[in-house]
Simulated scan of single mutants.
Amino acid sequence: MSTYPLAGPAQARELPPLSPMLAMIGSLPPPETEGEFAYETLWNGARTLVHLPADGTVRLVSATGLDTTSQYPELRALAGLLPAPEAVLDGEIVVLDDQGRPSVERLQQRMSLHHPAAVDRARQDLPAWMVIYDVLYLGEPVIQLPYTARRDLLDDLGLPAHGVIVPAAWPSMADEAMENSRREGFDGIVAKRFTSPYLPGRRTRDWIKIKHLAPAG
């Protein structure tokens, strides 16, 4: 039974209050359990839940619960990606460097801006992108579904568009994913257990953040 009651068709549905699921920092799963995970690129952006009430609006909520919609006006275009049903998506806001890789420095510059005029100028020089990698709500709560089912829902949405990135998931291929992220200039990968439900606000080993070791010197 759904933990969030759904309103009738004549009523506006209130999207559930949710907080992001968190990853543990660790190392690659051993060979005997490697096949229990999918592997995604580590983006190191600003964790954000995207609320799409299917009324032509979008609301961006930070990991600490702050409404950051006004800081990223270019991401209001997300409202047109899913005309229906209501949805809550999980991801990260990133700002890319000249090579198309996420830049922490550029993101920090963008996050520091709040005045509308400064934000408007920055959207030209430091445009924000939305990396979306999970679905929490799609007409009804889906957090109880395993990662594989939620990932299928995400892929079926057909979201990739200008300003939106849906990262690839590498099933059961830890070494390949790690090497690909190194080659592409990312900091590492996140291992996500196939069977794991989405646990709002929880940090568990169902998600493991694995970073590349800094070179000695």
Rank of each mutant, 00 (worst) to 15 (best):
Y4C: 11
V190C: 03
Q11P: 04
L52S: 06
T57Y: 14
L60G: 08
V88R: 03
Q99G: 12
A77S: 13
A168T: 14
W207P: 05
D155C: 09
I210D: 00
E74V: 11
S181L: 06
Q11Y: 05
T204P: 11
D187T: 06
L113F: 00
V61F: 04
P215W: 11
I143N: 13
L66V: 15
L213N: 07
A7M: 05
A128P: 03
M1Y: 11
L81F: 09
N180K: 12
S103P: 00
W129T: 08
P160A: 08
L153K: 00
V104D: 15
V95A: 05
N44L: 10
V190G: 10
D175R: 10
L15V: 10
T148S: 03
Q109E: 07
S112L: 14
I25M: 11
A174P: 10
L138K: 08
A174L: 09
D134C: 14
L6E: 06
D97V: 07
L66C: 12
F194E: 05
F37N: 12
R106F: 02
M24T: 15
M173F: 07
G100Q: 00
G56D: 03
L136P: 06
T64M: 14
R123W: 10
D98S: 13
L138W: 07
L138V: 06
G35K: 14
V131S: 12
A118I: 06
L159C: 09
M130D: 03
Q71D: 08
A12L: 15
F186K: 00
L18C: 01
F186A: 05
D97W: 01
V58A: 00
A46Y: 15
A214W: 06
V131C: 05
D156N: 09
R205W: 08
E184I: 02
E176Y: 09
R203Y: 06
D97Q: 05
Y133N: 10
G158L: 01
R121W: 05
V88D: 12
G100M: 00
D90A: 01
P5E: 02
L49A: 01
A12V: 14
L81Q: 12
L113A: 01
R183P: 06
P215V: 09
K209A: 03
F37G: 03
I93V: 03
G45A: 04
M130A: 08
A54P: 03
A214T: 07
G163I: 00
S172N: 13
L154G: 00
V58N: 02
D152A: 09
V135A: 11
S27T: 13
L78F: 11
Q108A: 05
I189P: 05
Y72I: 02
I143V: 15
T148C: 04
S27W: 08
P200T: 15
L136K: 15
A23F: 00
D67Y: 13
G163P: 03
E34H: 06
I165W: 03
Q108M: 07
R76Q: 15
I143Q: 13
D152P: 06
Y198Q: 04
L145G: 05
L42K: 14
P200D: 09
S70R: 07
L157E: 03
M1F: 11
L145Q: 02
P31D: 09
